Amino acid sequence: MEKALLATLEGRNAKVGALSINHLFPNRYVHAIGPFVLVDQICPAGNVPGDPPSEAGKHAHPHRGVATFSYILEGEMEYADSYGNRATAKAGDAHWLMSGKGILHEEIPPNTPQGHSLHAVQWWINLPATVKGDTPVYMFLDQSHFPEIMLPDAAGTAKILIGQIGNDTSPVPVYNNHFICHLRLHPGAKYTMPVEKRYEYAVFVPSGEAIVNGQKQGASRLSVFDFGGDEIAFHNEAARATDILLFGGASQNEPFVTQGPFVMNNREEIADAYRDFFDGKYGSITYSYNA
């Protein structure tokens, strides 16, 4: 039985520097999907200017109590943090950060030449209270780190970004039975995916279109499913391959508050997070450039 579709939601557009961001949620209809408390799409953009060395650090910001997962669809995204981690993710790669008790980081595009594009999606994952005080951990994930399985009837592939399918498991730590799967369906292909009745699910098509449970899913819109039902059916009617991002997990059983870059269990902890940031307890990012 197919999961019932609750709603298909438009995002909210915003500018962050030279980037156009599509804030998919939270909004007044959806506060969380499993432990996911925010999803942003960095909309496709060519000729994105990188920052000169004199402006290094202007995009640096803190996080606490949340894990962030940035998945690159096109282009490149550079990462640096106050624990000395630094990496550049290209198409198919990802940055994962467990911010724990607090960290300062920056994710910025290098210069993106005309004719090339930057396109990425970032998820915020609420951490259990028992993990919010842990030492931050960063992982750079090359595309080869993600298991990719062939779908039945040569329908396409499923890349496991977070979570598990069968015996294949992503190396990204999981705290709340959550998952992200990148489906790529071949032209004309159909695939029905078995899912958990008791979990919360959402589908996002970053570009193009797909048919999800018999309904057209347009680009840059978020579809949210009800509980019950044990499958979701996908169909690509287009003449080229299409990408579909499926994510979700178990409902949260702890209260949480999101404010700015922090996700904590109550407003007192939010106040503590800001106080520690202003007191410089999250450190600083060291920048060095060749002359």
Rank of each mutant, 00 (worst) to 15 (best):
F247E: 01
G133Q: 13
N22C: 15
G17T: 09
L222A: 04
D230C: 05
L127E: 04
F262N: 08
K132F: 03
G11S: 10
D134L: 10
P53Y: 07
N22D: 14
G75R: 09
P171M: 10
G65F: 08
D230I: 05
K190L: 00
L183W: 08
Q259F: 12
V224I: 14
Y83Q: 06
I103M: 11
Q217C: 11
N265G: 04
L9R: 08
H59T: 15
A202I: 04
H145Y: 03
S284W: 06
V224S: 00
C181R: 12
D272A: 12
V39D: 00
V263R: 05
A7M: 13
A189D: 01
L161E: 01
G228S: 11
S220L: 11
D40G: 01
H182S: 14
W123I: 05
F36D: 00
A210E: 01
T130E: 10
V16Y: 09
Y83K: 02
F146L: 11
E196L: 12
I42A: 06
L5I: 15
K281A: 11
G163Y: 04
G214S: 08
N111M: 11
P147K: 07
E76S: 14
S207Q: 12
R267Y: 12
A219F: 00
F204Q: 01
A250L: 12
D226Q: 15
I72N: 01
V48D: 07
Q215W: 07
N177G: 11
T192Y: 01
K197T: 10
M193D: 08
T135P: 03
P194R: 04
Y83T: 02
P136G: 02
F247H: 02
P110T: 10
H59E: 11
T242Q: 10
W124C: 01
F225L: 13
Y79D: 05
A154E: 14
S54I: 06
T286E: 14
R267A: 07
G218D: 14
G102M: 10
F179N: 04
S207N: 09
I125G: 05
F179S: 00
G65L: 12
H31N: 14
S223M: 14
P136L: 00
G280C: 08
P110F: 10
T130H: 02
S251E: 12
P53W: 04
L141W: 01
Y274A: 00
S170E: 04
G163N: 06
N253T: 15
Q259R: 12
V172N: 06
F256E: 01
L38C: 07
R267S: 13
N265H: 10
H235Q: 08
L246T: 02
N27V: 05
L118E: 09
M264A: 00
P171T: 09
K190G: 04
A87C: 00
L151F: 04
G17S: 05
E196P: 03
F146N: 06
K159A: 08
P49E: 09
P261R: 09
N266C: 10
V263T: 11
S54M: 00
S144K: 15
P52L: 11
G280M: 05
E55T: 15
I72V: 15
K216T: 15
G17E: 04
G218E: 14
G46H: 09
A7P: 00
N236H: 09
P255W: 05
A154Q: 14
D134R: 08
K15W: 10
V121K: 01
R275S: 07
